[in-house]
Amino acid sequence: MTQREIFFVANEVNELGGVGVWQAQMAKLLAERGHRVRIIGIAPPEVPMDLGENPPFETLTLYDRRPPGRRRPRALLGRVDPAVRRQEADMRAAAERLSREFRAAQPGAMIIVTQVWAMEWVALADTAGHPVVGMSHESFEASRKSSRFERVQKYYKDVDRLLVLTQEDADLWVGEGLNNVGFMPNPLPVMPDTPSPRTEKVVASIGRLSHAKGVDLLLDVWAEAAPRQPGWILRIYGAGDHEAELRRQCTELGLDDSVEWAGQTDDVIGALGRSSVLVQSSRGEGFPLVLLEAMACGVPCAAFDCSPGVREIIRDGEDGLLARLGNTSELARHLVRLMADQDLRDTMGDRARENVQRFSPDTITHRWEELFEFLER
């Protein structure tokens, strides 16, 4: 396989979160195959993620501080609005730094723009004839409900390939008139040597304490499930602005004796090894890494069917259980099934650990390299 220069251009080099974890993993995987990899961030991270000592890729951040959102010209001034002109000049100066990096690259280099905000700078840069891959790490429906929908249509319509997470999402973008769409799943982050024993009476939830992650719905689910399986604990890993409100809800539902607030964890695999079931109650997801991690640990998952990525990962009834989005009673019944039946947990957990290997790092990295070869033709 041809060794290449590969640029990841992102909102940040190392922002803590799903995209940041995916980006660091893919950069490492490609570097280990002999490619020269650089991650270029537009702005510094708000919550930085540790990339470890001597990562096998280079990094560069364009701004010392996060630049403000693009100004709209004041009606009477239009394009001559001084504030708008200053901001555009600043963006073009930052984009010129990108241009210099791209021009210095050897033929066959690839530019992967991992988030649409970063694409606003790449669109101003000279990509020097290198193929550009634009990415959306969220579902079509989640994008449609945000300002990113119009920006994907605007900035990604002319890239060499727009990559989303599933075939289902790709088809929906094609329906919007984009003819350059493909899909690429996230790779499995880790494959522990041994699975969870699945013997502790613990259901784990791992994610931000935010509206999108639906922990308020999860507490309603647990209020139905916990009385039917006494002795089980819901252990909630995560932090966020909604924590105080969620703790109050927990108390009002009478759940304080069966809910543990474990805080944010850097040891997801350890947390899963001490759990027998993972529950995900999100209102929306892209291609959630925590489901991949849980399945790699042999921990069966019960989740809301909130996006194509979730139902791509979990094979309902085979290696996990899916409930209709927002149907708390259905998700509660799924949890009770798994809590009540050790044999079911073991069967689904073992199948999950086997099935999730279709997203192995080698498999996904090979798919990326095949895409590079195709785009260079």
Rank of each mutant, 00 (worst) to 15 (best):
Y63K: 10
A303W: 00
I233K: 13
L289R: 03
R311Y: 07
A226T: 05
W261S: 04
A142K: 01
V190K: 10
V13L: 02
R38G: 10
R198W: 05
A31V: 05
R247C: 00
D350F: 07
G254W: 04
W22A: 09
R345W: 03
M110G: 01
L291I: 11
E376M: 12
P82T: 04
G182T: 05
Q280P: 01
G270N: 06
I206E: 04
R283C: 07
L234P: 01
L29E: 10
V290F: 02
I206D: 05
M295S: 04
P55H: 08
P107T: 12
R367S: 12
P288C: 02
D50V: 09
R72V: 15
W232N: 06
Q167K: 14
D241H: 13
E101T: 05
G134M: 08
R377W: 11
Q106K: 15
V113I: 05
Q357H: 12
E138F: 12
R86P: 04
M1R: 10
R324G: 15
E176T: 12
V279A: 06
L253H: 08
G238T: 00
V13Q: 02
A125R: 00
H35V: 03
L30Q: 08
G207V: 04
A262R: 00
P44F: 09
W368K: 06
L335W: 03
E88K: 11
W173Q: 05
L16E: 11
Q25M: 13
V221G: 00
E101S: 03
S258L: 08
H334Y: 09
W261I: 10
T166F: 02
A352I: 08
F8W: 01
E58Y: 02
Q342I: 12
E176S: 03
P197F: 08
Y155F: 15
F140L: 03
A223Y: 06
L178G: 08
V279G: 05
G20Q: 00
S307Q: 04
R148I: 15
A89N: 09
P55T: 01
R333A: 15
E373S: 13
I6V: 13
A128T: 02
E312R: 11
G284Y: 11
L165H: 03
R70N: 14
T194L: 15
S360V: 07
A27N: 00
S147H: 12
L371G: 04
Q153D: 10
D193A: 15
E150K: 14
S281W: 00
E373N: 13
I206S: 02
L321W: 00
Q167C: 11
L163R: 03
S281Y: 01
P288H: 06
I364V: 13
T199A: 12
L375T: 08
G309C: 02
F183H: 11
G326D: 07
E354D: 14
L289F: 08
E293R: 07
E376H: 15
T328K: 03
K28G: 13
M26P: 07
Q87N: 04
D319P: 02
C250E: 07
A262N: 01
W117G: 13
L272C: 05
E15H: 09
T127S: 10
V47L: 14
E370D: 15
A239Y: 07
F304M: 04
M191V: 13
A104K: 05
R315P: 01
L178F: 09
V310Q: 03
A109L: 01
M119E: 06
W222K: 04
V259D: 03
E96W: 11
V310R: 02
V279C: 09
P230V: 09
Q3A: 15
P192E: 00
L76Q: 12
R208L: 07
Q3E: 14
R38F: 07
